[in-house]
Amino acid sequence: MSDLTINTHGDAGFGDYVALLKPRVMSLAVFTALVGLIVAPGSVHPVEAFASVLFIALGAGAAGALNMWWDSDIDALMKRTRNRPIPSGRVAPGEALQLGLWLSGLSVVMLMLSANIVAAGLLAFTIFFYVVVYSMLLKRRTPSNIVIGGAAGALPPVVGWSVAAGAAAPEPMLMFAIVFLWTPPHFWALALFVKTDYDLAGVPMLTVTHGRAETRSRIFVYAAVLAPVALVLGFTSVGGPAYIATSLIMNALFLRGAWKVRNRSEDEAAADGHAAEKSLFRLSLIYLFLHFGALLADKALRAAGVA
């Protein structure tokens, strides 16, 4: 028996299962959920907060595993995703499905026990939205896939908020709106400089279906809508001087970057190796991190009695 046959199904390393949970996507969910939890009114015992964030992360991971199970056929076709655990043969599809389903159930039930039923229901809805609405229904059908699918990525701060506060409020909805509006320009900036063979896999990407020029202009439109929404959060109960200052600077930078990307021709972009698109993508990551980080800073300022 050769090593090749031994290395297939059933003997994946632990790291392969971790990879199924999409740890990088998970980190965004964890961070925004944690901020939502911390800035919400009401206090949560540190052990409960830790457990709740852990189960939110696990739920996000479960959704990632189910997404990898569903998409393994197209992942096998694209160079960027060919090495994922399922298409590479390290994990059997049924194994990923089981892991995803069990972790979904476990995370929702445990979040209900550690926090409350509202948070658990929202987590279940997030998993459902990402797996069924985004992966199964939208991804292969419409170039609006990431626009609508972005709702799944935008829900974690709302889940985190409801762990502490348990009720609907304008603040978590604004946090939702920020991540929701931020997602399309973030991914489209990436789509402009990463040559992924989406067309080979039959996934409609805006850059392919509507052209790159249209993608550039939509990036700017979303950035322009995002800016006022992001600023408004600064004037609610969770905002403060740190957030408003951060938001003003970051939105100005983001709009400037999006405007630059909007007005470039493909020749100009190719000439400098898509420098503006790459820097807009990097900026988008910093944008989100600093916005949520500033909420924490304002919370600390309020706790210290400064603001």
């Binding site: 015992h45 052990v47 409960e48 457990a51 852990l54 026990l113 550690s114």
Partner: peptide, 13 residues
């Protein structure tokens, strides 16, 4: 360990 910790916190409350 986590479930134990959670139990302690919730019961002690």
């Amino acid at each position: 360990a986590l479930v134990f910790g959670l139990s302690v916190v919730k019961i002690a409350r």
